[in-house]
Structures are given as C-alpha cells and as structure tokens.
C-alpha cells in the first residue's frame, strides 16, 4: 500500500492512498491538530468529493474505532460464534464500591466464573488488565462468561 504524502504550504500535510477496491481516500493533518477525512471521486482521482472536518477528539475516536477498539467488535463476534458464551459491557458507576479499588479486590472470576477481558477508559482500550489494575468511575468493564456469570459480575461491580 503506497501512501502519498504531500505538503500543503500554510496548512499542513496531506496523506492519500488507494484501497484494494480502487477507492482513493486520505486525510489532511492541519497544523493545529484538526484533521480532514477525504474521500475521492470513483472515476476522477483528482477530485475530492467528500471532506469531513474532524476535531482532535473526533479524529482520535475514529482512529480508535479503526484501530485498537476493534477488540470489542471481535468479542461480539466471538459471542455470536460460541453458543452459551456472553460478553457484556458493565460501566463502573460513580458510587460503585470498586471506584478506586483494584480488579484483584473484586475477585470476579472466583465469585462469578466470568472473566474480565478488557477495560475501556476515555475511549482507550486496556486489553487483559492485570489484577493490580485500579478501577475508576466511568470505566467500562468488558466481561465474558455465561449469561448468569456476566449478570452476577454486573451485580458485584455495582453493589459489592
């Protein structure tokens, strides 16, 4: 895959490439951190038919979606493939007894049989968190197990 890099004087940098299916897409990195998502015409490779301006956060979110956050997507797939296995995303509420305590303290696997496979914090995915991982309010805990196991894990994280 060849990524063409072009300087835009006074604006920033432009990166464009052609996908396997023949579509040209790219991005402009403005000097102040903004990004423009570019989609080119099917027939005329000179003409950009769609420009989506993105703020820094939006660009990061999009990169996450296209990159590491695919772990959640893969889990959902796994869930579909294996009969009887459920993955569930449990938020840590502000009043949760585990806000500020570690993953090891919750003893989820021992108490419910379900496993914590990832934690999503501020849009970033922490895959396979270790027992000393500290929970914070607004974390989203991804749990895999049986339907009963994941429901029990939800209760544990909400009420202790």
């Amino acid at each position: 895959m060849d990524v063409e890099r072009t300087a835009l004087p006074g604006i920033g940098l432009q990166h464009v490439f052609t996908t396997a299916k023949g579509r040209r897409i790219g991005a402009i990195s403005h000097r102040d951190g903004r990004r423009d998502l570019l989609v080119y015409d099917r027939v005329d490779p000179d003409t950009c038919v769609l420009t989506v301006p993105l703020t820094v956060e939006e660009a990061n979110a999009l990169a996450e979606l296209l990159g590491s956050a695919r772990i959640v997507e893969r889990l959902t797939e796994l869930h579909r493939q294996v009969e009887g296995l459920v993955s569930s995303q449990i938020p840590i509420a502000a009043g949760s007894p585990y806000d500020g305590r570690t993953l090891g303290d919750a003893q989820i696997r021992t108490r419910t049989g379900a496993s914590i496979v990832a934690v999503v914090r501020d849009g970033n995915v922490v895959a396979s968190p270790r027992p000393d991982f500290g929970f914070q309010a607004r974390d989203i805990v991804v749990v895999v197990g049986t339907a009963e196991g994941t429901a029990a894990a939800g209760d544990v994280l909400a009420t202790g």
Binding site: L8, P9, G10, I11, Y40, P45, D46, C48, T51
Partner: peptide, 17 residues
C-alpha cells in the same frame, strides 16, 4: 468549495507562496 483535498490544491498553494 471543499477543494482542499483535490490534487491540484498543493500546486495552487505553491503559486500563492
């Protein structure tokens, strides 16, 4: 006009510079 991504734009900007 959404021309920033177009292929002629770097050439236009260079003329301005």
């Amino acid at each position: 006009l959404g021309w920033l991504g177009n292929r002629e734009t770097p050439a236009v900007l260079s003329v301005l510079v």
